[in-house]
Amino acid sequence: MENNHSHSISNKTYIGIWIGLLILTFLSVEASFVQFRAFAVGVALFIATAKAFIVAYYFMHLKFDSKIISIMVLVTGVVFLTFIILTFFDYAFREPIV
């Protein structure tokens, strides 16, 4: 049987992480009121990705689980990014419709 409880995050750490996530949320909301123009999407997605990473790494225990799961997450991410990038090869280069 696997020994799953060798690693425990203390409740304090969890609450710290939670506060961190809240701060990032408010940061993201604040940023939306500043006119970043072209960067708005980038900034919002960057903050979201940071939050998602924190949730996955601590709350979802990627930090403690076997490496293979992290590798799988990575593969999934890469495949999904490939879908988006390759689809954009179409839309980014469409000749403007006359």
């Binding site: 939306s32 708005a40 919002a44 979201a48 939050k51 998602a52 996955a56 979802m60 225990h61």
Partner: peptide
């Protein structure tokens, strides 16, 4: 319980992306 937690966190992660995409990017 751990798996239920994983599922719940995933739902959270998806919302983390939905929120800026729909509400924040004007």
């Amino acid at each position: 319980q751990e798996n239920a937690g994983l599922y719940w966190h995933l739902v959270d992660v998806i919302w983390i992306y939905l929120f800026p995409l729909f509400y924040l990017i004007h």
